[in-house]
Simulated scan of single mutants.
Amino acid sequence: MRRERLDSSSLRSVGYDPSARVLEVEFRNGGVYQYLDVKDDEYEEFQDADSKGAYLNAEIKPSHRFRRLKKPN
């Protein structure tokens, strides 16, 4: 999945596949995770959030299953 770089203290890059409803997040520590069943409007809210890391922790992580693609360094 293609990811775009972010200006964030905890997140390095993010990508979204709307057809699969998968949000892929690369953290600054090197870990890469995919969050499953993320709806388009949730992704838009994530993109609009002042703090993407805070939104991810408050809204995405608690309510979505995930896959770890790469362990943190």
Rank of each mutant, 00 (worst) to 15 (best):
N57V: 07
V25D: 00
P18I: 01
Y35L: 05
E59N: 14
D48M: 13
Q34S: 07
R12G: 12
G15N: 08
V22A: 09
G30W: 03
H64T: 12
F46C: 05
Q34A: 09
R68T: 12
D17A: 08
D7H: 09
G31R: 14
Y43H: 11
S19K: 14
A20K: 15
G15M: 05
P18C: 06
D7M: 06
E45T: 02
R68Y: 07
N57A: 13
G53I: 01
S13L: 04
E44V: 03
S8R: 03
L69Y: 07
S63Y: 14
R68Q: 13
G53H: 05
N57H: 12
P72E: 06
S51H: 09
R67K: 14
A58E: 10
S63C: 09
V32K: 11
R21N: 13
V38Y: 00
K70A: 14
A54E: 07
S9H: 06
N29S: 15
V38F: 01
N73I: 09
V22Y: 05
E42M: 11
K70M: 09
V32W: 06
Y35D: 05
D48F: 04
E44R: 07
D37I: 02
E26Y: 03
K52F: 00
E24D: 10
V22P: 05
D37Q: 15
M1V: 13
D50H: 09
L56T: 00
E4I: 08
L36H: 10
Q34L: 04
G30S: 13
V14I: 15
D48A: 14
G30I: 06
K61L: 10
V38E: 01
D50Y: 11
S13P: 11
S13K: 06
V32L: 08
N73R: 12
L36K: 06
